[in-house]
Design a protein around this nucleic acid. Sequence first.
DNA 1: ACTTGACTTAGAGTAACTCTAAGGTCATAA
DNA 2: TTATGACCTTAGAGTTACTCTAAGTCAAGT
Lengths: 131, 131
Amino acid sequence: MYTVKEVAKKMEVCEHTIRFWAKSGFFPFVKRNSNNIRQFEESDLEWVRIVKCLRGVGIDNKSIKKYIELCIKGDSTIKERYDIIKKTREKAQKQMKELKKQFELLDFKENYYNELIKNNSKDTWNPMNKI
Amino acid sequence: MYTVKEVAKKMEVCEHTIRFWAKSGFFPFVKRNSNNIRQFEESDLEWVRIVKCLRGVGIDNKSIKKYIELCIKGDSTIKERYDIIKKTREKAQKQMKELKKQFELLDFKENYYNELIKNNSKDTWNPMNKI
DNA sequence: ACTTGACTTAGAGTAACTCTAAGGTCATAA
DNA sequence: TTATGACCTTAGAGTTACTCTAAGTCAAGT
């Protein structure tokens, strides 16, 4: 059993965000104790994990809500859920490619600046100089 | 020479965003023609590329502005710029790891749902069932 | 001359947090 | 026994970074 704060720490998500997601209906099975405090079970953490994953790939909250509702509906929605996950996986793959490109640009620039520093060079002769 | 629209298309960034970035001072060397239209040169595109890269890695606009200002200042800021790029590269690397984890979760879920569909299974017996 | 279309600006609207304020509950310490 | 502090709760304000809209300028085409 975890409180919001503990979930936030365990899942590395801001506490406020967990509450915001909870209010958005992303964790429909979380129970409360007699003091109205949310008690996340291990199975609820699975929902947090998926939501974090979908958000991390840039799925918007409205679409996440749709997915959550399909989950609640049960077995009849498995094909639909499969399609969503498949598309999301493809999106993630594209992002990995994009991120890799950006990483390579940063890598290049780091080396470039490093050379300049090592050689105590000015930067003014080179078309790359400005940025 | 490119207009905002052409830059947006070429660099795959929303036109509005290019204008927003321009207004934020991210492209200090872009000239205008006699009709007040921005004319991006090839060298200005390099700035767009870097800004897109930094944003893509989640650097906030205030920090990007700082980096831009260092670039404008010239050679004396090379070491500072190097440090920023280095940190950003490290950040990108972390994100690649994170994204890879998320991809693997999606991959697992896709396979799981796929099995369910193939076997025409119900999902109710499994602890993974709900989400 | 008039329309079309590309550009401009200021400013409104939006998504997704992120934080603050005000308040309830409970344990421990004076 | 009161109070101090560490939790939790909520509603709602504030923030970031777009994203879009409206209103206007200008040049070219019919």
